[in-house]
Design a binder for these strands. Structure first.
Lengths: 219, 219
DNA sequence: TAGATTGTTAATCGATTAACAATC
DNA sequence: TAGATTGTTAATCGATTAACAATC
């Protein structure tokens, strides 16, 4: 798919996987890797990795390959995660709290500046150092603080109108964890969906498909 | 990408989205829809939807389109979610509990028969009617109960060896929420990854890319 | 009947793979 | 120098789109 950004969605989707692979290599004390080495670990072709990287520049050396740390930093730069980003999280229920506690926001330069909820059990408290406010204060907050990205983790019923309010108030990017498709076509906002059920359903398809294949093999 | 299953990964990945769209139409009381109607809601082309469905059969009628309920059921059948599946969840920390509470397992024929953890704070209790046992009991449990699918939500450090143990003990499918790449190439197990950070990083790329475009527009 | 829309075949487009010259 | 491996160009392959006959 075209993006108009000089790289396909497929390529962009693979960059985080390259980065994860490089981080694992670094953890293992390996400082140098070839496109073939990365390809083997990720079950891809060396060509694909070189083609993907070529969209953004030259990061290796002939006859040598890639310096693990250097390439990792280059990919961080391409992705933009070397820069600092202000994040809010709307919906501090169990999913929101789980992410706040376990996802490596801080280590990747995401600063979770505030959470918003309607439950007075969390309002006024802090979750993993992030202060939680009432949703009624959201719009005022957006007027005062530059927010780059919103993690949307409210219940299904509130997804659409909350997203609309975020878009109207200038939030440029929404990371949507609500399992609902947002319709914000008229607004200048990026939406990235994390649809849990889609992923689970795909897995189920492969599970059923392979079990059918096995039945055939025994027949 | 080829799957050897008569449909590409792209097609399979879109089926859950079609289903979600149809469910929303049903909720709105709309009983009939054309490929163009679905396409508009999902920002796809009518051709693509008809091509995707054609991989599995004929579900519409010329001059009429598709019956919403009927097509939804056909897609459920294609995905295999009309069948009942036994699920266990290994790692009942905050992410595991959030999923147990909020994801529509039951409504999609997934029966979460047990959870496993090492924390005596949850062991022996039930979370949303699911009993939680000590991880030490996992292998025995797998010997007694037919498990179709495991939700893996343990901390990063335990991801690989837990996955290995699941694979060795005959779990056919792992839904991996650990942000770690599992290496189970030698085992007969399906792995579907839900890498939160990958999704967040992609969004960040688009965010930075569009902000650069805007800077240019003002220059 | 006229209009609408499917299922399907053909055309196009893009993504992946292969090959190789450049060079470390 | 010989071997390895990049970056890049060309070839292949698959996925998407367009077109249209069939028919409800």
């Amino acid at each position: 798919m075209k993006t108009g950004l000089g790289a396909s969605t497929n390529t962009i989707g693979r960059l985080p996987k390259y980065l994860r692979c490089l981080q694992e290599l670094e953890d293992q004390g390996i400082s140098r890797v070839s496109s073939t080495g990365i390809a083997e670990r990720l079950s891809l072709t060396p060509s694909q990795i070189r083609q993907d990287l070529a969209q953004f520049g030259s990061f290796g050396a002939q006859g040598y390959g890639y310096d693990v740390k250097l390439l990792a930093n280059c990919i961080r730069e391409i992705l933009g995660i070397n820069k600092s980003h202000n994040v809010i999280i709307v919906g501090v229920g169990s999913i929101g709290r789980a992410l706040l506690t376990h996802l490596e926001f801080q280590g990747n330069n995401y600063h979770v500046v505030a959470g918003f909820d309607t439950d007075y059990g969390v309002i006024g408290k802090t979750v993993n150092d992030t202060p939680v406010y009432h949703v009624d204060e959201l719009i005022d907050f957006l007027g005062e603080v530059d927010v780059d990205l919103c993690v949307l983790a409210v219940p299904k019923e509130h997804a659409k109108h909350t997203a609309l309010s975020l878009a109207k108030n200038g939030v440029p990017a929404i990371w949507n964890l609500t399992n609902v498709d947002l319709e914000l076509g008229n607004y200048d906002v990026l939406v990235e969906n994390m649809h849990f059920l889609d992923s689970l359903f795909s897995l189920t398809f492969y599970l059923e498909a392979t079990s059918k294949t096995k039945e055939k093999a025994f027949a």
